[in-house]
Design a protein around this nucleic acid. Structure first.
Lengths: 344, 344
DNA sequence: CTGTTAGCGCCTTCAC
DNA sequence: GTGAAGGCGCTAACAG
């Protein structure tokens, strides 16, 4: 007997294949394949018949089989440092929307830094046949990433880090511009002693945000190194770090935090210490996460166009996939926007 | 010439295959396959030689080719209603950790409700060959989901909704227990007029949380329907809804919100209205998201063991995948824990 | 212990 | 316009 859409030993119905469709429609499987691919040279009559059978059987082509022969999986790999990061979640949602429009899906994973400093995770994505990779943010060693980019045979985009690496597209905030805007704003509101709460999660890479803020503060105030604490970006750690910062430097009248989570921890610490915000002390974050609107007072933050950046990342990958060209190694700097709310 | 690891037309190096490895090690590709699978009947000597060549070439097996023949992709599909939901992000991170341990990866997607009310998205996951699906939370029509579960041939788990659907494992909070704990706690702290801020994002399915809370309030206070507002779970919408609720029902002295995001919006609204929390009004959320620790005062919330539930979901899928059995249709109710903080 | 044969489901290249 | 081979990279089932 020929193949037959029926019941397998396990009791589950076997999914129909193009052969099943072909037999039922009285054509070869090749013709079915042509219909699926919207090939022009198919008789209108044949096409309709095949499409009917496809609908009848609920046939859907096996993407893995397609990928095996076309070498195109219609999937992208997304490697995040921490999926619980809200800014990542928003970016992810944006990437997914753009990808879906074009028939792509996303394999999302957390970088396992213990394993090869993250390269192992990227290699694993390759074995899945992804057509491109987004790293968010890139904390892989530059040299290793460059080597990987060269041998991996698929385009790579990193979000959140402005660094020119051959074969890698970089999409990031204009940190220098952002820092200048924040410092200007704080000075304009009468602040003079800016303290920083930075992220030391990834000591192996330089903190562009930190460097940019320090530079902006030096330029504006002529000071040298601003008082700085570094901590993991959790509420509890940020509260503790902010308390340390304020205790050690009682003259600090403004805190710039690595991101909104850190800023919210800092804000809570200020309240606990009995400081009035923004009168005694200002607080600024980065990212523009929704929860910043719920604090008292609402958090001033450096808004990132997560959705726009997410779309740009996927579009860059799609572009490379379409014309087979390797990524240009370009750096896209996105204009920041300071959302002035209650904490400044 | 035989196959040769070299440069393709596009300039990218072709990934080596088991044939390449076999040729170089002087064995058949089948032997390489055995080494990969840790098959016992391979000469120690041969195994070592093959492993050397594998390392030398940087060979990694093509997962799609493996999946095509084994009918096991070592992947699970995760369908979320909204990836930007922080509770989902945490669950996702947990699922990913457990899955990775067992060599599985996750294809994460948002349910496209416009397309077949979500079934289309699930069908797409099937074409990718996923070995199981997690729906979070399930907002697909019950009858449709049941039909899908029957024909899809892979196990399905839904998180966040306690409903017995044949062929679907349900992992959810014990809503009745949670509601009783909250109401008891509010009564114990002297509150008498509980208002609800619920989620009407998915009008097509009953709100277990709402029903449970209403039941608990009726039981404890003998009241009928508590004052309720429904809104999308954003900060802004929640602020507005809370304001409406309080304005319309000035005697309300406690608000129970659908989740922490809604609760944070409500808290902000209370502050804005000049109400003292918890003295004038209490606020309770659900989920235990980290940001609840940063509000002033910190948010009282119904803690969910996201990580535990995530692990249970993946483990249920792994179990089914391992012994080929369909899911039992069981309902796992997880014990809630009330995290009493400053807002009550 | 190892090699050979036969596919998994699909697309590409050629014939007709 | 359509069909018949051939193969993507891998594993299962036999041989030996």
């Amino acid at each position: 007997m020929g193949s037959q859409t029926g019941v397998t030993r396990s009791g589950a119905t076997r999914r129909p294949t193009i052969v099943d469709v072909g037999e039922r429609a009285g054509v070869s499987r090749q013709t079915v394949s042509r219909v699926l691919a919207d090939h022009p040279r198919v008789a209108e009559d044949t096409r309709r018949r095949v499409e009917e059978v496809i609908a009848e059987l609920g046939f859907r082509p096996n993407r893995m089989a397609q990928a095996l022969v076309t070498k195109t999986s219609l999937s992208f790999g997304i490697a995040s440092v921490d999926m619980r990061n809200l800014h990542f979640a928003e970016t992810c949602s944006g990437m997914q929307a753009v990808a879906r429009e074009r028939g792509y899906h996303l394999v999302i994973t957390e970088l396992d830094l213990a394993d090869d400093g993250g390269i192992g995770t990227l290699e694993t994505l390759l074995t899945l046949g992804v057509d491109g990779i987004v790293i968010f943010p890139n904390i892989v060693d530059d040299a290793e990433l460059e080597a990987f980019a060269e041998r991996c045979g698929c385009p790579i985009v990193m979000i959140g880090r402005a660094k020119r690496i051959p074969g890698v597209v970089s999409i990031a905030l204009d940190e220098a511009g952002a820092a200048a805007m924040i410092v200007d704003h704080l000075l304009a509101t009468g602040k003079r002693h800016i303290g920083l709460l930075m992220n030391e999660l990834f000591p192996r890479i330089p903190h562009e945000r930190y460097l940019a803020l320090r530079q902006a503060i030096e330029t504006a105030l002529g000071e040298d190194t601003p008082p700085t604490e570094a901590n993991e970006p959790t509420i509890a750690e940020s509260k503790a770090a902010a308390t340390r910062l304020i205790t050690a430097h009682p003259d600090v009248d403004a805190i710039v935090a690595f991101n909104d989570t850190v800023a919210m921890g800092a804000l809570a610490a200020c309240h606990r210490l009995g400081l009035r915000v923004p009168r005694d002390i200002s607080v600024v974050g980065y990212d523009g996460i929704p929860y910043g609107a719920a604090t008292v007072p609402p958090l001033t933050t450096m808004l990132q166009d997560s959705f726009g950046m997410a779309g740009a990342a996927i579009r860059a990958l799609l572009e490379c996939a379409r014309n087979g060209s390797p990524p240009s190694g370009e750096v896209q700097l996105w204009k920041p926007e300071l959302l002035k709310r209650g904490t400044t």
